[in-house]
């Protein structure tokens, strides 16, 4: 009788409890995608896993000691110093106060590194998942999700450092800073979508994680990181081709609007916000589709 009840209440892949006994039904995926609602629920239920995994990963890289934490801050600061030298010494600064120029680079660089870390950590999350991919039934999107958490844990200390530099440079802080929250969300969604894409891609092309740093390095020069959007528009005026590349870049609206708020203390251009949001949605839908439609192959290919 119990069995009959269970059969009546089954939907593909759904676990229903009949007298405390969970029932699982496994059927072929429709359109190569797992049942989405079940999938999302399972990810939600296991979010503590992604969180603990992120912590453990950072700990494995010695980022949970005092000096490790310090390194997380010193490393991007040193990088910022390098870029600062490059921009001010080679190109000549437009700021009389060098700290003003430094904050321009810091804010863009830290923001860029958040996206970069998500993509880079995600790209090895599945190929590095090893035996568990083959031995355990769980939604694999949890692994890139834990990369996202790791990246956030690495990102927030740099934000604190930026805040100090921001105040030291005598820059303004106003109500417009509330815009940073939606911009952060847009950036996170966009980066996570990319993370899903590259995590799955690395299963098929194992050299993805070694090729990525080059692409990411080029990306930083195409993004409003070492200069602001208005500076770029000024310099690239007339060079339609380069300006087009610059504007197609998803980080153009995302970091551009971030910098508008932080450096100019004003609400971001509505066009930039909408454009950034559109990129985030495209990235999430595209990345999630690519990842989920290939998830069943991970176990065979790892």
């Amino acid at each position: 009788m119990v069995v009959l009840d269970a059969e009546a209440s089954q939907v593909a892949g759904r676990a229903g409890a009949v007298e405390g006994v969970p029932v699982h039904v496994y059927e072929p995926y429709a359109a190569h995608l797992p049942p989405l609602r079940t999938y999302l629920r399972e990810v939600g239920e296991r979010r503590r896993f992604a969180y603990r995994m992120a912590h453990a990963t950072l700990k494995g890289r010695n980022y949970e000691t005092v000096f490790g934490q310090l390194w997380l801050v010193i490393n991007p600061l040193l990088l910022a110093a390098v870029y600062f030298m490059l921009v001010t010494v080679l190109a000549g600064s437009q700021h009389r106060n060098p700290l003003m120029g430094f904050t321009v680079i810091l804010s863009g660089l830290f923001s860029y590194y958040y996206t970069r870390n998500i993509i880079q950590l995600s790209s090895t999350s599945i190929t590095g998942g090893g035996k568990m991919i083959m031995n355990m039934a769980f939604p694999k999107a949890l692994l890139p999700l834990s990369s996202l958490f790791s990246s956030f844990m690495m990102y927030w200390p740099t934000l604190v450092v930026y805040a100090v530099a921001h105040l030291a440079a005598g820059r303004a802080v106003g109500l417009a800073f509330a815009w940073l929250v939606p911009i952060f969300v847009v950036q996170t969604v966009f980066s996570f979508g990319c993370g899903l894409l590259f995590a799955a891609m690395a299963v098929y092309f194992r050299d993805t994680s070694s090729l990525l740093p080059y692409a990411l390095r080029i990306w930083i020069y195409l993004s409003p990181v070492l200069f602001t959007v208005s500076q770029a528009k000024l310099k690239l005026a007339g060079n339609t081709w380069l300006l087009w590349i610059f504007k197609v870049n998803p980080l153009y609206p995302i970091i551009g609007s971030w910098n508008q708020v932080i450096l100019e203390d004003r609400a971001p251009d509505a066009v930039l916000m909408l454009y950034g949001t559109a990129w985030a949605l495209v990235s999430l839908v595209g990345g999630a589709w690519f990842f989920l439609s290939r998830e069943r192959e991970f176990a065979y290919r790892i």
Partner: peptide, 27 residues
């Protein structure tokens, strides 16, 4: 539940635990 079927149907009543040759360990 690690590999979805290509065709057919599997019905499992109860909690499943695996003891597979490849062992445990995420990392």
């Amino acid at each position: 539940g690690i590999l979805p079927p290509t065709r057919g149907r599997i019905e499992v009543h109860g909690r499943v635990s695996t003891l597979l040759a490849l062992g445990v360990g995420f990392n």
